[in-house]
């Protein structure tokens, strides 16, 4: 029982980061029908910014807003340079464009920085734990869960209660008609990319605090977690993306702690097996999005 509770808390901590990443993916998928395989590049870029600033001796308190800002700006720049040119294209084109962006960004670091791992120091409290009864809880997980909760509430308010959120939802439902109503496509899409960047920035801070290093291909893992979680939750559903993130985090933690040691390093493989099974038995993901397809 205690072990399960322990897993639950660990899983929530891990899942929080995935949920933020997945939500960022889902927001963009909603307005542009683009599944952003370049989402992880926001973390790659942030990682190098963290490396440069922290190795200059800057504190994490200062670097945190810089990282979030970097993610937002990078997200907007990528939209401007690449995605704005393929708006309304087929899924195939959109997917490959984002895949291309992923490669160009990581290749730039490969070309101009280096292929080797760059490490930076992590804040001291990341590894601290405290105990409640027999539970050992990381300070880090507590912070992550708390910040994620606040972020999710804020995002929910933004989307449900503001005119921007209304425009975002209208554009996600029917882009052309939203434009006919005066919704500016640039505003909505850039807003979505900024929001996605903000969410990735927050997730990125935690990701980098835990990793303490970066490489040109660092974006692959967070990208994959984000898109997989969004898919598990049900593509197109914001709630589903968040749920998918937590489910993925929990599944990973549970598997890792339950699998025998000899195969524990293959957790990713087993997680994939579970996901494949999920899609065979529930192909629409956890939350079904009503298809507005007129027949």
């Amino acid at each position: 029982m205690t072990e399960l509770l322990q897993n639950l808390i660990d899983g929530l901590g891990r899942g929080s980061i995935y949920a933020l990443l997945a939500l960022g993916v889902a927001v963009i998928f909603g307005v542009m029908h683009l599944l952003n395989f370049a989402h992880g590049e926001l973390i790659t870029v942030s990682g190098y910014v963290a490396f440069w600033t922290i190795s200059e001796g800057w504190s994490w308190y200062l670097v945190t807003p810089i990282i979030i800002g970097t993610a937002i700006v990078t997200s907007l720049v990528i939209e401007r340079v690449a995605f704005s040119r393929v708006r309304g294209s087929s899924d195939f084109t959109l997917l490959l464009t984002s895949f291309g962006v992923h490669f160009v960004v990581s290749a730039i670091f490969l070309l101009y920085v280096s292929a080797s791992v760059k490490t930076f120091s992590r804040p001291g409290w990341v590894t601290n734990t405290y105990s409640i009864g027999s539970l050992h809880i990381e300070v880090f997980d507590t912070v992550v869960i708390g910040v994620t909760l606040v972020t999710l509430l804020g995002t929910s308010w933004l989307i449900q209660r503001t005119m921007f959120g209304l425009a975002l939802r209208a554009a996600a439902a029917d882009f052309d008609t939203a434009r006919l109503m005066g919704v500016r496509s640039d505003t909505v899409i850039r807003g979505a990319f900024a929001l996605s960047g903000l969410l990735a920035g927050i997730a990125g801070v935690f990701w980098l605090m835990r990793a303490g290093n970066t490489v040109p291909s660092a974006g692959i893992a967070p990208m994959l977690k984000g898109v997989l979680a969004a898919l598990i939750g049900g593509l197109g559903s914001l709630r589903g993306a968040v749920l998918g993130g937590f489910v993925l985090g929990l599944a990973e933690v549970l598997l890792r702690s339950r699998l025998p040691d000899s195969v524990a390093s293959l957790t990713e493989g087993f997680v994939f097996l579970l996901i494949a099974l999920l899609f065979i038995f529930r192909p629409q993901g956890l939350i079904r999005v009503a298809h507005a397809e007129r027949v």
Binding site: L95, I275, Q284
Partner: peptide, 27 residues
């Protein structure tokens, strides 16, 4: 898995599964 999720959520879902496969074989 590809065919079922593709039929349900469109080709995008199928693509993500293929990407996950690539990642997992690597892992």
């Amino acid at each position: 898995g590809l065919a079922r999720s593709g039929a349900e959520s469109g080709a995008v879902a199928a693509t993500v599964i293929t990407l996950a496969l690539l990642f997992v074989t690597h892992e």
